[in-house]
Design a protein around this nucleic acid. Structure first.
Lengths: 158, 158
DNA sequence: AGCATATAGTACGAAATCGAACTAAACAAG
DNA sequence: CTTGTTTAGTTCGATTTCGTACTATATGCT
């Protein structure tokens, strides 16, 4: 039926490859999520950890909307996550001096400590995974994934 | 402090690489999730689609637990997803002849049709993404991701 | 066989997710 | 300055997610 312009068995449609790729990515995300979550548990969820991690790595003083956009979640969900972090004393909310509607998210010392401890707790698991296929493969995959993330991000608003 | 056995700036710890990698994967999964969801909507969620897709690709006659394990979700969540699919007439639940406790999930014709249509609806978006970094890169990434998924899956039960 | 333990699935309730509606402030145009 | 539009964030409610507890069957051990 379909025209076979090269080797039929190996002929792979671009959409097909992408489907498979995102399928794998979805499963990996789910697996890593549950793996990390099993290591966390001071009642901390992945969302809590991810937000803390983001603030440590890229600097605090972000607005809630910045974070919502960064993680592609609705602002109401981010509100909820931040409320949880604040209740635990891991962040503080300040009024945004540049925008009377807005707030700024500030890491507390405790927040940074908790994040660092979480990293320490999870790191052994991460390190254990690498040797199973070599650091080089993983390093090679990173730029590709970054690019894919950027492309998908742009495709977001059609 | 850390010994610099090569080029210090590029020296990357295995755990660090893995963190970054899974971070990217998580964001990509989230983006692709919302992208797909925007194309679906006959009330179908990603979970519905993913389950249908799995059954078409790998064959039906799986138990709910098979599916729960495949997607790494609690069995109660899978119950809920399957209930939704059954209510829509996209699957049927049979008793498992080999296990009196269990059930088998069967695709209906309608289920297969709906899955195929969903694929058709999403395919253009998938195809649009590929040219932005070349089919070869994507094909190269696939085996790596599969391996990572398998490794994580094994690490699951410590 | 009989009993202990493990497993498949469901019921139920608590928490999380997220859309809709709302408040308040910013911004844009006249 | 007023008016209309946009944006940040919260509140509220419907739906989803998922842990706990339960039932029923299977499996393993003696």
């Amino acid at each position: 039926m379909t025209k076979s312009n090269e080797h039929d068995g190996r002929e792979k449609d671009a959409a097909l490859v992408m489907f498979e790729l995102l399928n794998e990515v979805g499963i990996i995300a789910q697996l890593s999520r549950t793996l990390m979550e099993s290591r966390l548990d001071d009642g901390l969820t992945i969302h809590h950890f991810t937000a803390l991690n983001h603030l440590v790595r890229l600097g605090d003083g972000k607005t809630p909307m910045d974070l919502a956009r960064a993680f592609q979640v609705p602002k109401t969900s981010m509100s909820h996550t931040l409320a949880g972090l604040e209740k635990r004393g891991l962040i503080r909310m300040e009024p945004n001096p540049d925008d009377g509607r807005g707030k700024l998210v500030r890491l507390t010392d405790s927040g940074e400590t908790v994040r660092n401890r979480a990293i320490q707790d999870i790191a052994p698991d991460m390190a254990d995974i690498i040797p199973q296929f070599g650091l080089e493969d993983a390093q090679a995959a990173l730029p590709f994934l970054r690019k894919l993330r950027v492309v998908l991000d742009k495709a977001r608003d059609k």
